[in-house]
Write a protein that binds this DNA or RNA. Structure first.
Length: 431
RNA sequence: GUGGUUGUAGCUCAGUGGUAGAGCACUGGAUUGUGGUUCCAGUGGUCGCGGGUUCAAGCCCCGUCAGCCACCCCA
């Protein structure tokens, strides 16, 4: 093998693609029912967009972006979907067109991290964004939607984590307080956290290092420093979640690594350990300042989440295999291939899926293949059939076959499919 | 980016420095034109790649690439 897929990126072949299609279809259905419309934004944006919105000191921007220079433009292949969607929202002046916009997207994202279980350099996210509604009901509804989504995919063992880091002023104040708290004990922290002390003290809180856990014990809690408004927002959100019956845990250590978040943060984690250290299936929160930050004349609150599709697929039952063709056309000699082609075309025009075996192999080999593909009907065209202007139609499930004139073969095939197909009609809802 | 671990047939894997293997899959036959089972046979290998040690390397050593796992971070 000379050329391989680049590290951390992989092919999704047809047998696996059916699972992706089912997942995406379910996502679209549920999310559209909740009022979201699809947005498709460019996969490449100016580097500045991500640097400004995600934050210069975050790992995503600092070391994980695929960035390149094209003539005078500094460009980046998107590492996440929120910044680009927000940019599109502002650029297209949606705030002037409608008070509230609900958007969703599905597509690939790119981060140059070291690959691991549930983590790839090209990965796929499906996410939603709401612009223009700052009320906590909106947050509660979105979190509920997230739980509904993963349940629809067949995920059972998960827990929703919720936190608030307050609006911009609160967040900065909390950050300073944490720095003040941790600085005197900096020697007792892990090496990573000593670095975090300077770049992002919030992150020390969700460190896995026992030294940091110990040191965090007496640290000030976000919930204690929230402004009255922020606290009321969180309290209302919690009340709504209770009314909706969404189980969740209030997790004061939930921080998240993107700088744009304000107030509500949430994450949905799998609890089975199937994903190793990458236990977050989906994460999101509020980013009430981004729209102004992007130059919008009027401030617009915003809220969003993104779900990792590879991760969801990794913890989701496989579902049904890719369906085989309804008809499998098996010409037994070269002279039969032309009529078989024509018959195949006629069948497809009547809506019957069919596949032609042009390999020139034995009938046995062709039937074996038809059977392996779970075709419903095999259409046999050999010497005898050709002489009489007929075909043999074989029902592979019932082990019955009949002869029919070529001219009526399509009708006979339709009738046979209709009579034998009832059992195979049900399709599973799970991805 | 750091550490660990694994790379042998399409897949899953055995292989103790001395002839490259099994099961599954695929193809053919037993069955001059019928799927499954069974039986028989066959195709398929730069042993990830590159160096080194040795009379001799899939096996030992070094490097490199890739997968996986953990850390960092995140979906």
């Amino acid at each position: 093998m000379v050329v391989r897929a680049v590290r951390g990126m992989k092919d999704i072949l047809p047998d696996e693609a059916v699972r992706w299609q089912r997942l995406e279809r379910t996502f679209r259905t549920l999310v559209e029912r909740a009022g979201y419309g699809e947005v498709r934004t460019p996969h490449i944006e100016s580097t500045e967009l991500f640097v400004r919105e995600i934050g210069e000191d975050t790992d995503v921007v600092g070391k994980e972006m695929y960035s390149f220079q094209r003539h005078d433009d500094a460009l980046t292949v998107r590492p996440e979907g929120t910044a680009g969607a927000a940019r599109a929202y502002v650029q297209n002046n949606l705030a002037a067109l409608e008070p509230v916009s609900r958007w969703y997207y599905i597509g690939p994202m790119f981060r140059a991290e070291r690959p691991a279980k549930g983590r790839y350099r090209q990965f796929h996210q499906a996410g939603c964004e709401v612009y223009g509604d700052e009320g906590p009901a909106c947050d509660a509804e979105m979190i509920d939607l997230c739980a509904e989504l993963v349940q629809a995919f067949g995920v059972r063992d998960f827990v929703v984590h919720v936190n608030s880091i307050g609006s911009a002023g609160t967040r900065a104040r909390y950050r300073d307080e944490l720095a003040k708290y941790f600085t005197p004990m900096s020697a007792a922290l892990s090496e990573d956290s000593q670095r975090r002390l300077a770049t992002n003290p919030l992150r020390i809180l969700d460190s896995k290092d026992p030294r940091d856990r110990e040191a965090s014990q007496g640290a000030p809690r976000v919930t204690d420093v929230l402004s009255d408004d922020d606290a009321a927002h969180l309290a209302a959100l919690r009340r709504y979640l209770d009314e909706l019956g969404v189980p969740y845990v209030l997790d004061p250590r939930l921080v998240r690594g993107l700088d744009y978040y304000t107030r509500t943060l949430f994450e949905l984690k799998i609890t089975t350990g199937e994903l190793g250290a990458q236990d977050a299936l989906l994460g999101g929160g509020r980013y009430d300042e981004m729209i102004s930050h992007l130059g919008s004349k009027r401030p617009v609150p915003a809220l969003g989440f993104a779900m990792g599709l590879e991760r969801v697929l990794a913890v989701t039952p496989a579902g049904e295999a890719r369906p085989g063709p309804e008809c499998y056309l098996a010409p037994m000699l070269e002279r039969a291939t032309g009529p078989a082609l024509v018959l195949g075309k006629a069948l497809r025009q009547r809506g019957i899926s069919c596949e032609l075996d042009g390999r020139g192999q034995s009938l046995k080999a062709m039937l074996r293949r038809a059977s392996a593909m779970k075709a419903r009907l095999a259409v046999l065209l050999g010497e005898e059939e050709l002489e009489r202007g007929e075909v043999t139609l074989k029902d592979l499930e019932r082990h019955e076959q009949t002869r029919a004139p070529l001219a009526t073969a399509v009708e006979v095939a339709l009738a046979m499919l209709a009579s034998s197909g009832a059992a195979a009609a049900g399709s599973a809802g799970s991805a």
